[in-house]
């Protein structure tokens, strides 16, 4: 089963765990499994329309899924999914 690393501020929505092992053969399925198991994670990661929020990037191991197959990116046992913020700004 792939493992999803949970950023510290979101652990309160994931049973205080820093990582969760989930089922699923793609990133989309793995994230769906995560939010089914921990429903409070959903509003942090997805908009009401079900799209990943603009400030959320997802990596499989060292690769950004935007440059792979996005939510259809395949995952397998031993893969690590990271939730990484997207941050910029200016005065």
């Amino acid at each position: 089963m792939p493992k999803i690393l949970i950023p510290t501020p979101l652990r309160q929505f994931a049973g205080k765990k820093d990582a969760v092992e989930v089922g699923g053969a793609t990133v989309g399925e793995a994230l769906a499994a995560l939010t089914t198991e921990h429903p409070d994670m959903k509003k942090n990661l997805f908009t009401d329309e079900g799209k990943l929020r603009s400030f959320v990037n997802v990596y499989v191991n060292d690769e950004d899924i935007r440059f792979l197959e996005k939510d259809k990116t395949a995952v397998a046992a031993g893969d690590t999914i990271s939730i990484v913020p997207s941050i910029a700004g200016g005065k």
């Binding site: 690393l5 510290t8 990037n57 990596y59 941050i87 700004g89």
Partner: peptide
């Protein structure tokens, strides 16, 4: 002078350093 942007991979690195 007016903007900044962080690379996601740098934030992934920061998260890994923290862990």
């Amino acid at each position: 002078r007016e903007r900044y942007e962080l690379r996601p991979e740098d934030l992934l690195f920061a998260e890994r350093e923290a862990r």
